[in-house]
């Protein structure tokens, strides 16, 4: 699957709708920022674990809360990257039949792709229906990980990342759907092509 198949990056053709184009650019910006944070986070994760592992050898006093931070980091990294991974066509799918239809039966494929994007939107709407109240609870009721008096870290920031990650992925599905409906194709040329 090519990098640019899933409706990534602004179209090289003139946009039909200025508002849609601006929304698309805004989403691209957001996805890129979240992607950068997620990528930097991986580096931090590596450093954090290395410092902890070597630190216990060289310092008498090890660090509190590394376990908790690592556990939250994994969730953070995944949901920071999920939207961009979707934009780059990295959300796992078995594309044999799908691509065959796209090439051989574009009319059928258009219905198929529309239904699949709608199902994707439905899925993330359901996840958000559950995740948003969880995030609000975590914020309002001060949920934390760790032990009071030793090390605690609030739970709401990571819940916020989950919600944001699912939200931008949902918006990415909406954009692909929009392109399929408008142009009959999710294919976008890479910049400069």
């Amino acid at each position: 699957m090519s990098e640019y198949e899933q409706g990534a990056l602004p179209s090289s053709g003139a946009p039909k709708s200025l508002i849609a184009a601006k929304l698309g650019l805004g989403l691209d910006g957001l996805l890129s920022v979240m992607n950068s944070i997620g990528s930097g986070w991986i580096f931090l994760l590596m450093v954090m674990i290395c410092v902890d592992a070597t630190g216990r050898t060289f310092f008498a006093h090890p660090f509190h809360g590394v376990n908790e931070l690592v556990e939250m980091s994994i969730v953070g990294i995944v949901f920071m990257q999920l939207g961009d991974a979707t934009r780059r066509g990295r959300l796992t799918r078995s594309d044999g039949f799908y691509n065959l239809m796209r090439a051989r039966a574009p009319g059928f494929w258009r219905y198929q792709a529309t239904i699949f994007e709608l199902l994707g939107i439905t899925f993330f709407v359901i996840v958000l229906t559950g995740a948003i109240p969880e995030m609000i609870d975590a914020y309002q009721l001060d949920y934390f990980v760790g032990e009071e008096g030793l090390f605690t870290f609030p739970e709401w920031p990571i819940k916020l990342v989950i919600v944001l990650g699912c939200l931008v992925t949902l918006l990415q599905f909406v954009r692909i759907l929009w392109r399929i409906v408008r142009t009959g194709s999710a294919q976008i040329s890479p910049p400069g092509a």
């Binding site: 799918r93 078995s94 594309d95 044999g96 039949f97 198929q112 699949f116 199902l119």
Partner: peptide
Amino acid sequence: YTGLYIPV
């Protein structure tokens, strides 16, 4: 088989 995203 038909190509829906597997997580979905």
